[in-house]
Design a protein around this nucleic acid. Structure first.
Lengths: 249, 249
DNA sequence: GCAATAGTGTCTATAAGACACTATCCG
DNA sequence: CGGATAGTGTCTTATAGACACTATTGC
């Protein structure tokens, strides 16, 4: 808490009129990603009002005067998904003048990752207006495959395609040195191959099996970040695999 | 440019009142770093008004309604240094509620790097209020050594110490995979050792000479990013060294 | 000669890419 | 058996750390 150092300063602060200058609006926008059937999916919401009415957009909203920008991002995520325990990661602020035809809007962008199953359970009332779209790479850039429709890059509202592309690029870089990958896991316990699938899906290319196991051993097991549970996984039609669990730190 | 898709939408946009909700102020703050005598220096400005009157702060200012946030950062840099050809790098947005006792302020933070010599020449009228401080690591955190005074971490205005620390941490990471190091160079032509000194200063630890030369050869020469000039440097009392030049791309 | 920088050669440790091979489960 | 996953061993390459050694310049 800031304490004025003089009577003069206290009076200055009391009399300060912050309304003298015009101000931009600030939003927190959040790129929510999940993995279903070995494909990245992004959460989009259908806009009910102008502008871009009927278009799909990244969830987001105005930052309240009594909440931090980070809190606003977490709140937006909660409003769209009902989930309040998902970490959000700020990755950039988009401040071009003409981003929104209504007024000047500056958007602080976040990304968040969650297992697909957590959302199916929470699917809310207006589920038709909030959906995961599969992100697919095509010759014409990205395509977004929804349950009832397919979008092109230019179908997204505002500059949300730029925000989304930046998020995907940063995730591809981040995943090797952060623990983002674990945030996609459905279950607390997982097999090495399940984790490998997440890396492959995010990076868009296959990982060598042997090398991935070695990296897993060096980076996670040797450091104690992940421990073997002793249980065997028997999901699917295959040889039972050792399962692992990430330790909180 | 956004084009309304219906008469209804055009009317909505024309009638839209963006003043209905209270809005935060947004600033672009910029961490300007240079290297003098093998030490990182940060540009600080002395605050003339409340709050934190008389304290030193990172340069910055409110984002105008007709300029992008990136442009605002470049403008602030120009206003403090007179330099308009220095790239700025956005690295984070600081949005806690109580950052500024006057009102709600959200700051988009940038960093910029420049050779010390470029600023000596431009040293402006109010030079006493805009100065480079050497950043020194002490047992009590950072200290800032100015020409006439020494600051502790807690002497900086607002949460600027957090912003500065984040910038320094990110620069240490960035420097290995960006071309930030070249931005510190006084001269277009440089020797390997001069570049090595920049890496050492930024990272705060010595680089092995042999290894640095090898990295330089692999990362810059082999890729054609840097070419040998053929000239020899004879700065200082030592054996003349090959000089190199970075190619624009 | 000495301090400081310039420049090369080489040994080693580590991480990463590639590939061969075996094992076990389900259908 | 075949397909898919589980798991190990090993050869090779790239990169990085460490160290020894020589060279040139100004003082």
């Amino acid at each position: 808490m800031y304490v004025p150092k003089s009577k003069e300063e206290a009076e200055f602060l009391a009399a300060y009129d912050s309304g003298k200058y015009e101000k931009p609006s600030v939003t927190a926008d959040i790129v929510v990603l999940t993995i279903k059937k070995n494909a990245l999916h992004v959460l989009l919401v259908r806009r009910g009002g102008f502008p871009y009415k009927g278009c799909w957009a990244i969830p987001g909203g105005f930052v309240g005067m009594q909440e931090s920008v980070d809190d606003a991002a977490a709140r937006e995520l909660w409003e769209e998904t009902g989930l309040s325990d998902i970490p959000v990661h700020q990755f950039g602020t988009f401040g071009e003048v003409d981003r929104d035809p209504r007024m000047r809007v500056i958007s602080v962008a976040y990304m968040a990752f969650l297992p697909a199953e957590r959302l199916e359970a929470k699917a809310g009332d207006d589920a038709a207006e909030v959906q995961f779209f599969e992100i697919r790479d095509t010759e014409d850039g990205l395509a977004f495959i929804g349950p009832r429709n397919v979008l092109k890059e230019t179908d997204l509202a505002f500059d949300h395609i730029d925000i989304l592309k930046r998020a995907l690029r940063m995730l591809k870089n981040r995943i090797d040195y952060t623990d983002d990958a674990f945030a996609f896991l459905d279950d607390q316990d997982f097999t090495i191959y399940e984790l490998q699938r997440i890396f492959e899906t995010v990076k868009g290319r296959p990982e060598n099996l042997t090398n991935f196991r070695r990296i897993f051993a060096n980076k996670y097991l040797k450091t104690g970040l992940v421990v073997e549970t002793g249980e065997k996984s028997t999901r699917g039609s295959r040889k039972p695999a050792a399962t692992y669990r990430r330790l909180r730190n």
